[in-house]
Design a protein around this nucleic acid. Structure first.
Lengths: 210, 210
DNA sequence: CAGGCCTCACCCAAATTGGGGGATTTTTAA
DNA sequence: TTAAAAATCCCCCAATTTGGGTGAGGCCTG
């Protein structure tokens, strides 16, 4: 049976262009097209797409948010982001949201169809250009105001460890850890763990590692 | 001035092969070669390399661990992983550790030199094959024992939020969040935040995102 | 020598956490 | 249809954690 495809893209020309290309292959059925995520999500059960071609810059809910929501309802659904060249952070976030690949808007017919084939086969369709962006988004910035020790402590916080646990692992007293925390909070102008993690995480001062 | 390069690789033939290739370009100086990370790290200050070519499967300290340590001491140093085709998890972890690129062991002369050029220019040298692995490593496994709601709650924990904060954000009471936590702990057979995060993180049941 | 960094201590009060018990409703699956 | 699972909420309890304050000694670097 043919794979079911849903297209979400606000530019009508581009959307119908993609639809035509996909249909032309004969192996895919475009079951629906939407110009925004909200509409698409409300029709998810009927459409039950195998693949979603998703634009990132959409009116209303962003493609990022949409990807997360769709993945939540249809975990098996593969979402391929349609994009012009954007910043590496967006690409990274899309992957975090559950995107299965990236194709650029001005791809030719064969590339598009091949991307969908690849995605269904379990591969990750994307250009080397985009892949490199992902890698670059890993690079931690080195202009952190936090000292080495403070970074270690915050890293522990990021892993949900208690002050006591962190102290044990760093071979220092609990009060020392508390001192570092106080300094961290002062430097970042916050007063809670979650706030500190949010800004240190966004600025890549810590490894949000797994 | 030529860029300073250090090579860490336990196989002597491969190591010297790389050295010869790099030297042959004339634009790079191989300032040192080591067969393990420990030796390399103890000579870091004198060597002060701009680029490190690092094997992943090393005796003693792994290339992953070594990458982390070197990055800590020389944040500006670019570390390129030399590898045979490995699992996507290793590739992902290397990038987390601070690797700036990936080249495969049987690359030819031009590829190697070009990779180093690319790395120094700020790009991320890697094959499309490897890039795809990175992307694949983002895919969350869907065999989680946690329910959708429980996953949301644990996600909040991962961001360092308090039960109260999570409750507010999910529009439920604090006790509901506590109920979910209790169930999570039982399912994962743990009894603390950090333990739950560790196993849920490792198995990719949650997005460690920011 | 000033300033940052790392270390540690003590005080305090509020909040959080983990564990126990139970209850209801809705959804899902057998 | 019936049982299990999920989601919601309530109460109790005690230990721990957290955030904030103040102070202080040693070390290293510019």
């Amino acid at each position: 049976m043919n794979s079911r495809i849903t297209i979400i893209e606000d530019n009508e020309k581009i959307r119908e262009g993609f639809a035509a290309v996909v249909e032309s292959s004969g192996r895919y059925d475009v079951v629906s097209q939407y110009s925004n995520c909200e509409d698409a999500i409300s029709h998810l059960p009927e459409d039950s797409p195998d693949v979603v071609l998703m634009d990132i810059g959409l009116p209303g809910m962003s493609g990022l948010e949409g990807t997360t929501r769709i993945k939540k309802r249809l975990p098996g659904c593969i979402i391929i982001i349609i994009t012009v060249m954007e910043d590496s952070e967006k690409v990274f976030q899309s992957l975090c949201a559950g995107a299965g690949g990236y194709i650029v808007k001005n791809s030719n017919v064969e590339e598009i169809v091949r991307s969908i084939d690849e995605a269904l086969a379990g591969g990750a369709p994307m250009s080397l250009q985009i892949a490199k962006m992902v890698v670059q988004s890993f690079n931690r910035s080195n202009d952190s105001p936090l000292s080495a020790r403070e970074t270690e402590v915050l890293q522990g916080i990021a892993q949900g460890k208690s002050y006591t646990k962190i102290a044990t692992e760093l071979f220092v007293s609990k009060d020392t850890v508390r001192s570092h925390i106080k300094n961290i909070y002062q430097k970042l102008a916050v007063n809670s763990k979650s706030e500190a993690l949010k800004i240190a995480g966004n600025k890549k001062w810590i490894n949000k590692q797994w």
